[in-house]
Write a protein that binds this DNA or RNA. Sequence first.
RNA 1: ACAAGAUCACU
Length: 280
Amino acid sequence: TYAYNTAISAFMNFGMYDEALSIYKQMTAERVKSNSVTFGTLINGACKLRSYVEAQHFFDEMLEMQIDVNVEVCTSLIDAYAKQGLLNEAETMFNKMKMLGCSPNVVTYTTMFHAYGMQEMWGKAYSLFQDMEDCGIEADTVAYSTLMSVLNKCGQSQIVIDLARKMRTKMVNLSEPVFYEILTACSKMRDWDLADTVIKEMESILPNLSYGLINNILRFVGKSANVEAMMKLFYKLEHSSIEPTSETYKILADNLATIGKWKENSEVFSWIDDKKKQEY
RNA sequence: ACAAGAUCACU
């Protein structure tokens, strides 16, 4: 069994689904017992390759053979349903998993928030979040960022700000995506004072920031007539070890131009020139 | 021996 599982997993890691499947067929032909690791590998692999029908098929087979299912497999399947837009199936799975002897954990709940978000159902997501807390499951930073992203998307930025306060009292780490969502909320609520405070707080994770997200933050902080906050943030970034991209400079220059700060604008262009010279 | 979730970028 170990040997077969290893082989199946190796093929799955290379995205070679057909080969993995034929190993599995050989396994059953030779009457080697498959276990939950075998099916876990097959189902997770199929989900990653977006072969959702196959994943479902393995799951049914797993139930028929009365092999124990685990939380990871259930969560994987819920995510697979959600990504196909099959919210009802996802909900059914979520309810059914308790009957199968595994209870949803924080990852499962997060997957459900995301599922509701895809259908713009922020109310469902938010009330599920409250259910989760009632069950004594603590939200982590991914759970918060997921829920916040749903709420921002549905125009509920005030709740995002409330959640941010809650994260602080519960001492949950504020990760980069969480900062992004909080700042998005500030910008939608036009709460520049709060945005300023949040940007100061971001200093603690500054060395770990990626410019993909930073560029977006600079873009909307600057766009909302808060160019000063944008520049302040940029200066702080300069002192950290991360390299701005050319997109970063473009955003700065554009935002400065919109409010007529031509002097600063041309300064940004001179930075770009300096940078080019350094490269030679 | 296998494992599940968010934001951004790339495609």
